[in-house]
């Protein structure tokens, strides 16, 4: 028997190895999403929308129908797809720059309208594709290209707490969670619950995944995990913020 790598069935094998940098967290988030798609068996009725930024490199990642749109506009495009054909399962995949900066109004409005879509947002604390500039999620004191002395909260403000905001404005039936690629199984469970919430038609589903960016953080493997697990999880505590039943299940 031919031995194959343990790649999710929904991945497009012809485009592997994928285009992300070595050590990029996108691979892990997309692996979790791929495994969730496989386990739910929804590959044939799924539409995947990716955003501008590093997340657009996932345009040929899956063997599912894929749309690529402009900054943060993935959310309204996917809302349109879902409204046109409610049978489809849609996933809007974006980075923190697309989702929280230029596309935040779409995220806010989709959450307020309680559209039955799943938004998967990858937070790596900078604009990675353009060279690591400061993003809304850059942590206080973190050095980036545009904050060479560290982010000064008196000038640049505080980082954006996305899931907390979505949990506050969304309605009953919404699912909001924050996972981390360091806790892979839990992240996969969150993504699966978000997809199930959409399939049940209960409401808006939002998952933020804390991710890694060794290229722009300029870290080695050890420092990458340390930054993600020690510093980022303090600023952004992972967990479920809102579940359809009310409390954490």
């Amino acid at each position: 028997m031919e031995v194959m790598p343990k790649i999710p069935k929904s991945w497009n094998l012809e485009t592997k190895p994928h285009k992300f940098c070595p050590g990029c967290g996108h691979g892990m988030v997309l692996k979790a999403l791929g495994q969730a798609i496989d386990e739910l068996g929804i590959q044939d009725r799924m539409v995947f929308g990716c955003d501008i930024g590093c997340s657009l490199l996932s345009w040929d990642f899956f063997n599912v129908d894929t749309v690529q749109t402009h900054h943060g506009r993935t959310t309204p495009v996917m809302v349109g797809v879902k409204r046109a054909n409610p049978e489809l399962i849609v996933v809007a995949y974006m980075g923190d720059g697309g989702g929280y900066a230029i596309g935040s109004q779409h995220l806010v409005n989709a959450a307020t309208r309680d559209d039955k879509i799943t938004v998967l947002l990858v937070n790596n604390t900078n604009y990675a594709m353009t060279g690591g500039q400061m993003a809304p999620t850059t942590m206080p004191g973190q050095k980036t290209e545009t904050t060479p002395y560290g982010r000064d909260v008196s000038e640049a403000g505080y980082p954006m707490m996305g899931p907390e905001m979505v949990a506050a404005i969304s309605h009953e039936g919404a699912y909001v969670a924050r996972g981390s690629v360091a806790k892979f199984r839990r992240l996969k469970a969150y993504i699966k619950k978000a997809l199930e919430n959409q399939m049940a038609g209960r409401g808006f589903s939002f998952v933020e995944a804390l991710s890694t960016c060794p290229t722009n953080w300029r870290t080695n493997a050890q420092q990458t995990w340390a930054f993600l697990e020690d510093q980022m999880t303090k600023q952004y505590p992972p967990g479920e913020l809102k579940t359809p039943t009310g409390k954490e299940a």
Partner: peptide, 17 residues
């Protein structure tokens, strides 16, 4: 333990975990 060199980019995340 199988490693596929055609997929490995040498990031080293596995070594630390």
């Amino acid at each position: 333990f199988r490693i596929f060199p055609g997929l490995c980019k040498g990031c080293g995340l596995c070594r630390e975990k």
